[in-house]
Simulated assay, not measured.
Amino acid sequence: MKYFKLFSFLSLFFIYQNASAQSTFQKYFIDSVDNAVDVSNFLNAGFGFLPVPIIITEPAVGFGGGLTAIYFHGQKKQRENLDTLNRYAQSKDLPPITTGVAGAYTANGTWLGALFHQGSYKNDRFRYLGALAYLSPNLTFYGSGVIDDGEYSFNMQGLMTFHEFLFRPKKDLPLFTGLNYIFFNNNVTFIDNEPETEPLKEATNLGGMNVVLMWDNRDNTFTPTKGIMTATEFGLFDKSLGGDNDYTNFAHRTYFYLPIKKKKLFSGYRLQYQAKWGDNVPFFELPFVSLRGIPALRYQNHNALVLETEWRWQVFSRWSAVGFVGTGFTAPKIQEFDFTQSRVAGGFGFRYFIASDYGLHAGIDVARGPEIWAWYLTVGSNWFR
């Protein structure tokens, strides 16, 4: 009899535990409107870190993985923000305040550990982005006019920190201005096929500061569907800022989002230009063509220009299809761009609407560049910052 009671107790206990687990999962990971998987309630709860697996598919470093633990600070908030024409007020989510730690490793021996934070404060009057990381990437330098073309494998290793402070002068205008600073205590080692140019072998610390001017009226920071984010940075890398080299940096990026068919078809357009000039620009700091399907650093020079468009078709309520294509150019001087010598890359993918309260979509892209196929895990917009 006592065994029967024990068996009954254990059966009821496990049934209760299973029902409790299902209830918890339903509460935090199922949308009550359409009964689909959705992590919004978990993110809104603000009671702990969200573990997010990292899947690295960047061709320059090989396949890899890691883990990020992200803390979302508190409940989702709302604010009223005027549109660019000041005709009417629209509800818009505040950019989330998050803190996280991350670690990752890839097939070619690249690894990193990082601590980061981003936030929007005082009803989005102030924004901050900061990171502290120790990283050791194994990459390839292709000459880029600095030395003879070839494949020169190298390792960078050191402590890097980045901080950006932005201020919105008028609360009813999405115009921000501020400064950012980067320092990288970097040591460069060539793994094989060492170049004969001696300066490339030296330890190179980076220290630079930029003035930032940014306009951002996107309807969402994760997966925007309308609005413009345009930003310009101008600054100096200098010995007085902690670096070993003196040179000038200019960067501009514009992301324009336009809905074509309401709740069905969305388009995005990207223009990105970067220039670094001076006699002592480190080879790994030269601007490069950044497109899905092209490895990082593959096409570099003192000037790099990228144009890209991405279209998303909302096939079902949660699932959408994505297509994208872009082209990139490099040149030693801005007046020497040869627009007949473009590097084109494009592809397709899918997205799942994973967090409706945050407008967050995630999925996979497959891309083809001039030389290789590649695939990417995309969470939010592929056009970050």
Rank of each mutant, 00 (worst) to 15 (best):
K201D: 11
L236H: 06
K171N: 05
D216F: 09
N245D: 06
A231S: 12
L206W: 01
G235M: 00
N220G: 06
F183D: 03
N193D: 15
P199A: 00
F190G: 01
T189K: 13
K170F: 15
D219F: 05
L175I: 14
K239W: 07
F190T: 14
K170C: 11
F176D: 03
T189Q: 14
G207A: 12
K170E: 14
P224Q: 01
E202T: 01
M209W: 06
N185M: 01
N245H: 06
A203E: 08
Y181C: 07
F222Y: 13
D216P: 13
N210W: 01
F176G: 02
G243F: 09
G227Q: 00
P174A: 13
L179H: 10
N245E: 09
D246Q: 09
G243E: 01
K239A: 03
N186E: 04
L175K: 08
F190P: 06
D219L: 10
D238I: 08
E233L: 08
E198M: 04
L236W: 13
P195V: 11
E202W: 00
K239R: 12
K201H: 14
K239D: 10
G207Q: 06
K170L: 13
E194I: 11
L241S: 09
E233N: 10
S240D: 11
N187H: 01
M229D: 05
G242L: 05
G207D: 00
Y181E: 02
D246P: 05
L236Y: 13
N180M: 01
M229G: 02
P199E: 03
Y247L: 12
N187D: 03
A203L: 00
N217D: 09
T197N: 12
E196T: 11
D216V: 13
G242M: 06
F222N: 07
Y247R: 00
F176I: 04
K170G: 07
